[in-house]
């Protein structure tokens, strides 16, 4: 792949393709996001916006292409994904079966040795995987076992997201929802919590304080102990943003944050989005179905249709682009 680096870009997606069986949902899309900008991705329903977004967020493995975050390749076509499960499952299973067979056949020593060998192979690797998950992931990434990211790794890198269909933790309180968002920025482990070590207590206190700040930042002070599922729709959307911000992202992905809102709520939401960039310096990728919403806040707009990029530029350029009008209004409208 091309080794050209662009230090001004937070995200650089190069010819990203995503296929679902025979359907090409995203076709060879190049997409860049400069630091500190608000970039919008628009297009009619089914254009592939959410799919593209899920590829960046590490939910879907991409079929082709490469994604650089902060100048480092973080997602590429997965390689040798079968190697890890084989190590964890096939090898120990065979060893165990052999061990049991040896024991049943009365060759006790060999059985014991095989059993010990299984434990020796699995337990150290497991301890490393449990206690140092990031290091472990980086290690197997380096050995080429797999290169594709899981969603949680993208969050650790600094990508936060919301969902098109709200996915809050409905039975948890507003405060707890935001604190789950802080998960990757907290470090207390099992022992810290079980033994109530100082580290856990201090971190927990700080987390509650920060969570309260995030909640009032999105205008929901006073709702801390309400169950998320009991919130009205507009508040649920804001809570999703607070939860994503709590992971301290460098890049925030918002999937149709104004879907289903009335004009007043929509205006409030766009205000919040602009404020997040201005106050917090977070770069934002905004997906929208409704073209008008993005025009006010975006620095740059990219248009997808049938999985392909059909236009890119400033909001005014895009609005005047005949191909875009055609995609939205159908053939004939552009020539009218």
């Amino acid at each position: 792949m091309s080794s050209e680096q662009r230090p001004d870009l937070v995200l650089d997606a190069r010819s990203v393709t995503k296929r679902f069986g025979g359907l090409v949902a995203v076709r060879s899309v190049d997409f860049t996001i400069p630091f500190g900008s608000i970039v919008s991705l628009i297009g009619p329903n089914g254009a592939g916006k959410t799919t593209f977004f899920n590829v960046i967020a590490g939910v879907y493995e991409l079929s082709d292409g490469e994604i650089l975050f902060n100048g480092e390749t973080v997602i590429a076509r997965p390689r040798r994904t079968w190697a890890e499960p084989i190590y964890w499952f096939v090898v120990p299973t065979i060893l165990l079966i052999l061990a049991v067979a040896a024991l049943l056949a009365g060759i006790g020593i060999i059985g014991h040795l095989l059993f010990l060998a299984t434990l020796l192979a699995i337990i150290p690797a497991l301890l490393v995987a449990l206690t140092r998950p990031r290091w472990y992931v980086r290690m197997i990434g380096r050995t080429g076992i797999f290169r594709s990211s899981r969603p949680n790794e993208m969050v650790s890198l600094g990508i936060g997201r919301t969902f098109q269909n709200i996915r809050l933790f409905g039975n948890m309180s507003v405060l707890e929802n935001v604190m789950v968002g802080m998960h990757s920025r907290m470090h207390a482990n099992l022992l810290d919590a079980a033994l109530r070590l100082d580290r856990h207590k201090r971190e927990e206190e700080a987390a509650v304080n920060d969570a309260r700040k995030w909640i009032s930042y999105v205008g929901m002070a006073g709702y801390e102990n309400e169950a998320a599922r009991n919130l009205p729709y507009g508040y649920q959307r804001r809570l999703e943003i607070a939860r994503a911000l709590a992971s301290e992202p460098k890049l925030l992905l918002l999937d149709e944050p104004t879907a289903g809102m009335n004009p007043v709520e929509t205006r409030e939401m766009t205000g919040l989005i602009a404020r997040v960039r201005k106050d917090l310096g977070v770069t934002i990728l905004l997906i929208e179905h409704d073209m008008e919403v993005v025009m006010g806040v975006s620095d740059r707009v990219t248009v997808l249709d049938h999985g392909e990029k059909i236009a890119e530029g400033s909001p005014d350029e895009v609005r005047a682009n005949p191909q875009v009008i055609e995609a939205y209004l159908g053939r004939g409208a552009a020539s009218a």
């Binding site: 949680n152 969050v155 997201r161 996915r167 998960h183 990757s184 919590a193 109530r196």
Partner: peptide, 28 residues
């Protein structure tokens, strides 16, 4: 003690919605 800790919240979050939990940085 685990219930109201980072780990306890992660468990509940996974029970509620595994994809959302992973997207909030939890190694499920």
């Amino acid at each position: 003690r685990l219930e109201n800790s980072r780990l306890g919240r992660a468990w509940v979050a996974i029970r509620e919605d595994e994809l959302a939990a992973a997207s909030m940085g939890i190694n499920t």
